[in-house]
Amino acid sequence: MSITSDTLRGHTDAIILTRLLAGDSYGYAINKGVQECTGGAHSFKEATLYTAFRRLEENGLIRSYWGDEGSGARRRYYAITAEGRQACRQHVEEWESTKHLLDAMLSDA
């Protein structure tokens, strides 16, 4: 695996939380949002995405509910919790400082 995909994988939870900051959404829309904001460079494998949803929900960072789509299909929506917002903020802060460290260590003297 490349460094890029490994690094992205480590931020899966925070990326999902960030997508949910704008409002409730469902799996496909979230992933599509990720794909669009990266200009098509990245999207999650479904298995990764749904495992992350379960984990985030268990840790109380998001909650979910079933929406009625009318056409007989069940669609599960996700909403970020107050704890999730806090975790997201914290993650972004930690990432900022990590980024600075890496930039400092990987840039030419």
Partner: peptide, 14 residues
């Protein structure tokens, strides 16, 4: 069954 429902919905949309 919840995971199956959800994945079916997503993959059909895709």
């Amino acid at each position: 069954s919840e995971v199956i429902d959800e994945l079916t919905d997503t993959l059909c949309a895709k």
